[in-house]
Amino acid sequence: MRKVKLFTIDALPYRQPIPVYGYRFGSRKKTLAVMGAIRGDEVQQMYVAARLVRKFSELEKQGAFAPDLGVLVVPCAGQFSMNVSKRFWPLDNTDINRMFPGYSEGETTQRLADRIFRALQGYRWGVHLASFYLPGDFVPHVRIMDTGYQPNEEGLDFGLPYLMIRKPHPYDTTTLNYNWQVWETRTFSIYSRTTDYIDEESAEMAADSVLYFLAKKGMLPYKLPEGVRRFLSEKGLLGSELPEGSRTKTVKEENLVNIHNKAGGILIRYHHPADFVREGNLLAEIIDPYTTDVREKIRAPKDGTLFFAHHGQLIAGRSIVFRLIPKERVGK
């Protein structure tokens, strides 16, 4: 393992210069780069990357790396926001993940995006440990932006429960994922359950999925991640026999069913991401914040697996309370 200073952030008056570190493993070839936290609340993403640093370090010591495997892990490039409890750039609230590919002569967050992107360029594969723009909990999954630049099926090699295919929106074109693809790195975003607090189980699953991906490429010893196996088993997605590959299910984002609420109030959730629900099952209630009277019952519109659940206790009307993978839409 080699700890290298990628660049230093010296952009804020009265703040000390902040070095951004990367951890390199294996050969000097640019095989895989993993980007952890970019935003200031991505504690889980930083933690997953940190666990990967430990795992890669141990594997490297064991001599398990294939000769042509070279890995870079950047646990965090959002320290300046993280240390003051801000999600975005502290001065102007701009989001570095809406500034890629960056610009070295541009404004502050464009310059930071440029420095991050330069450190991450040239890798064969890229993994961004990402967070979502809506506050909520997910089923752990790998997500691919369907740009046409890379084969989507490669996402199956992470062995996570779901592979989500997303058609890019205009605002996606300034994200790390999109630009990394354009710069010829095959790119995957991995979503674990949480953002601003640590969920050990899904953090382990996310970190192991990266090792599993490299194992599938013949660059690390093969092993189905224990966390993934346990998850699949608990959800009845595994038979008695361990499959040769994963049982990853491919889902197109446009096929998800959004379950909305009409009323605002306090959200009482009865189901959680990864739960299989039947049509008509009571998923949640919206209760009056003054009296606890039930204002609305949220029921499953069809059979399926819950993919996303709103996170907060308070909820406005017309929000997305759940996203559901309908049973008949699930891929292979």
């Binding site: 306090i266 909820i315 017309r318």
Partner: peptide, 10 residues
């Protein structure tokens, strides 16, 4: 308009 969580509408 849309209802906000606690006694108000947007």
């Amino acid at each position: 308009k849309a209802p906000l969580p606690v006694g108000e509408a947007l």
